[in-house]
Design a protein around this nucleic acid. Structure first.
Lengths: 152, 152
DNA sequence: ACCATATCGACAACCATGTTGTCGAGCTTA
DNA sequence: TAAGCTCGACAACATGGTTGTCGATATGGT
């Protein structure tokens, strides 16, 4: 048999891999003019997309609209989003990324591409593809509700 | 070139894999007499080991001793640990897992082994080993300070 | 055209988990 | 023995989540 490998290592390794990537991301982001960006910012900003409302953002992140509203407030304080009234619906307040917010997202994407390339250099394209394919098959797609997930 | 695969998928897949495993763990734990166990409990209990103090637990988890003390209080309320005075050092209060706490850890280990076996059936032993080996090489070992890590 | 219903954003109260800072009590060592 | 470190406790606060409530605004059925 091959009972050698204990199962509990798997989740720890996956989490460590995630943490390693996000740590590296924010290290690079800090050097590129975003020293105060935090993991949550990226997630939420990604979910904001080209413009949303608090209620819709809440649905995307899997949290209540009140929680989303607080997140938006934090994102606004950090200068990553701005709010504007919706002319077609007086109830809605649309949240859009600022130029700085779009810069954060663009740099994040570039850094993640670079990080993947580093993994390919260290592990080989095959190993990285294996990881991506295997996790893609097992997890039925990535979820965006990460920040809140842990204390659940 | 092979720029096809965007780098941002990697962290999301790793996180999704972690979440999938932990979700499955707690689904099974709930059926085995631990319905109120939460991810944090397992992490902290693992860090408690055979007996520790709040300050030491804080160091292991990478949080302040105050935060560790609150965690211990929660773990105690859930019935997973008990506190006892240390006869050799009147300052210290030793925290030990209860029988129920040890049961939680034993079941968790067994469930994780089972989950790994399921992954092997779905993905093949090679893919799982590749994931473990690759992440082990890149991450320089799993970290135990997961619960607090996100909001940092 | 109107009214019932649903949705939006805001506010309040609360919980959980972390943080600093402070404190008295108890070890340890110079 | 006195200085200094460590332990656990307490208070005050920040953050990010929750429910519950509310007034204002759309929307759809009669």
């Amino acid at each position: 048999m091959s009972t050698e490998r204990p199962g509990f290592a798997l989740p720890l390794l996956l989490l460590a891999g995630f943490q390693t990537l996000v740590d590296a991301l924010h290290e690079d982001l800090a050097e590129q003019g975003h020293p105060e960006a935090r993991p949550m910012h990226g997630f939420a900003l990604q979910a904001v997309g080209e413009g949303t409302t608090a209620a819709e953002l809440g649905r995307r992140l899997g949290v209540t609209k009140q929680a989303a509203a607080k997140t938006i407030a934090a994102l606004g304080t950090a200068g990553y989003v701005e709010r504007a009234a919706d002319p077609t619906d007086a109830r809605r307040v649309v949240v859009r990324p600022t130029a700085r917010g779009r810069d954060l997202l663009a740099r994040s994407a570039a850094i993640f591409d670079d990080l993947r390339a580093r993994w390919v250099r260290e592990l080989g394209e095959d190993a990285v593809r294996t990881i991506e394919d295997a996790l893609g098959r097992i997890t039925s797609g990535p979820r965006l509700d990460a920040p809140s997930w842990f204390t659940r």
